[in-house]
């Protein structure tokens, strides 16, 4: 590896989604798609190889971010983290995503990295992944045969592996329209403020007064892929959020996860602290109107 030198490949610059899809159809797993390209550049400098990079740079119309109170949020394949961050709608209706975007990597990378790119990375530490997983929604994939939608609940399959087939492009992310009593929040723990998460978590709650009607909790860095805390969600469902319940959750979360040691933290720490982080995201979500 050498961080000064990129290995060789052919760069393809299609001008329409259809052209991109047909290139993918042609080259299959010999090609990778890039938008900002930051992740791929770093990966290629550290050993990842691909024959073709298909850049979305010349395809117009994919960098949209559209909110509709009845249908929800649509985020295009080229929409950057910075665009998410400058959206008042995201901040108001999808605070978990906005909060994840606000600490995502660095300002420079937020200007080039895309939300969909982060989802496709399928890293258990992905901050946008964590937020989107809790918020729920669909990812629109386009292949030669047309489009299909995959729920975020079925999108991440293994470390670095998603439900996207090699000849498909992830073209859009849809987040559902917020229902009444909708709350969400994201938090993470890091070694320094600018860092990859050693633990991240998001909560998406549907509240009726102090009572929680529905809950989706996601947590990262505790398995090969980000995970939902379904047992803890069940504790919340239909319950009033009290200090006692939160303390019960703090102890329960540790039983639902089986993290490992890595360079950023230890299994022991993650086990002990994951519940605290979940308590924080629930509390933070509830505090926000």
């Amino acid at each position: 590896m050498n961080t000064r030198i990129m290995p060789e490949f052919d760069l393809l610059l299609p001008e329409t989604v259809e052209q991109a899809v047909s290139l993918l159809d042609k080259y299959q797993d010999k090609a990778s798609i890039i938008s900002g390209g930051t992740d791929v550049c770093v990966a290629m400098k550290s050993g990842y190889r691909t024959d073709f990079l298909i850049s979305l740079a010349k395809i117009s119309g994919l960098d949209y971010l559209e909110y509709d109170p009845s249908t929800g949020l649509r985020i295009g394949a080229k929409t950057t983290i910075s665009q998410v961050l400058s959206s008042a709608d995201v901040k108001t209706y999808y605070p978990a995503l906005w909060q994840a975007a606000s600490i995502f990597a660095t300002p420079q990378l937020r200007n080039t990295a895309t939300v969909i790119g982060n989802l496709l990375r399928a890293s258990p530490a992905g901050d946008c992944i964590c937020a989107v997983y809790a918020l729920g929604g669909n990812i629109v994939l386009q292949g030669a045969e047309g489009q299909r939608e995959v729920s975020v609940d079925e999108f991440w399959l293994a470390y670095g592996v998603t439900a996207r087939k090699v000849d498909e492009i992830a073209i859009e992310l849809n987040l559902p329209a917020p229902v009444k009593g909708n709350r969400s929040s994201f938090k993470r723990l890091t070694r320094t403020n600018e860092d990859l998460a050693k633990l991240n978590a998001a909560a998406h709650l549907e509240m009726d007064g102090k009572k929680c009607k529905q809950a989706r909790l996601s947590i990262g860095c505790v398995a090969a892929i980000p995970m939902r805390l379904e047992k803890t969600e069940a504790l919340l469902k239909g319950a009033e959020i009290t200090d006692d319940l939160l303390e019960k959750i703090v102890t329960n979360v540790g039983n639902e996860i089986s993290p490992i040691d890595d360079v950023r933290s230890t299994a022991e720490y993650r086990n002990q602290v994951a519940g605290v982080l979940i308590k924080r995201v629930i509390t933070q979500a509830c505090c926000k109107s």
């Binding site: 961080t3 070694r191 320094t192 403020n193 600018e194 860092d195 990859l196 360079v263 950023r264």
Partner: peptide, 16 residues
């Protein structure tokens, strides 16, 4: 060496 990069050798940043 597991952290010969700024990704994992952590120095305090401006906000720390």
């Amino acid at each position: 060496c597991l952290n010969n990069s700024f990704t994992d050798y952590k120095m305090l940043g401006a906000s720390d």
